[in-house]
């Protein structure tokens, strides 16, 4: 840390709206839009080609197609999201199926401690299993009442809103439960293995 450095002539103008001050993690700024950041081309997945699989250290590997996924119980997340590129979107909502609901069917084995999420197109990200359970994560197909747009990961993306948003893998198709942490795409490319925005865990070693 730099202790006391002041940027000459800087006063700032993106302070969060009144009443939302406590909702911005360190180093984040308030963004009213929904920026798009993706590695490589934007995937085009039709719902009739869409599948979601939960495998690895589970009692039953389970695979859903779009129709069987739509038949699962649904819940909504109301709150904030934080991107490692510094923007935070406050007061948004997503709905879909909680990861708890998926794991209820797959039944994790006791030694499962980590999850590697894989997307159509091959993107991967790793998340501790504890960060995906107890109502903290979803496979979301709806954003603010509308089908999730393709550029935001539609038809469905992982949603782990308490971690930086690269963990919320767009176009997710597989959750693999593992005993050991296996780093995903950004985690191998300089980004933090867990990514807690409140601890500002942006990069490897933060």
């Amino acid at each position: 840390m730099s202790g006391g450095f002041i940027s000459r002539g800087f006063f700032g103008k993106r302070r969060p709206p009144e009443g939302m001050e406590g909702r911005l993690p360190p180093g984040q700024y308030y963004e009213s839009g929904f920026p798009v950041l993706t590695v490589g081309p934007t995937e085009k997945i039709e719902t009739d080609a869409w599948t979601l699989r939960v495998d690895g250290l589970v009692e039953h590997a389970v695979e859903w197609n779009w129709n069987s996924f739509q038949a699962l119980p649904r819940t909504t997340y109301e709150g904030d999201i934080h991107c490692v590129t510094k923007w935070s979107k406050l007061g948004t909502n997503f709905s879909g199926v909680s990861v708890d609901e998926l794991l209820k069917l797959a039944q994790p084995q006791p030694e499962a401690k980590y999850v590697l999420a894989t997307s159509f197109g091959g993107y991967t990200t790793n998340v501790p299993l504890a960060d995906l359970v107890d109502g903290k994560a979803w496979v979301a197909d709806t954003h603010e009442g509308q089908p999730l747009p393709r550029e935001h990961g539609g038809p469905a993306r992982l949603l782990v809103p308490h971690l930086y948003f690269w963990k919320s893998a767009k176009w997710v198709t597989k959750l693999t439960l593992l005993a050991e942490d296996e780093w995903g795409f950004w985690e191998r490319n300089g980004y933090h293995h867990r990514g807690d925005p409140w601890k500002e865990q942006r990069y490897t070693g933060d």
Binding site: F5, I6, S7, F10, G12, R14, G27, Y29, T85, K86
Partner: peptide, 16 residues
């Protein structure tokens, strides 16, 4: 790089 600006009141802004 990440750049961090600090205002006199301690408010900070970062961008890449």
């Amino acid at each position: 790089v990440d750049v961090r600006l600090t205002a006199p009141d301690g408010y900070q802004a970062q961008r890449s």
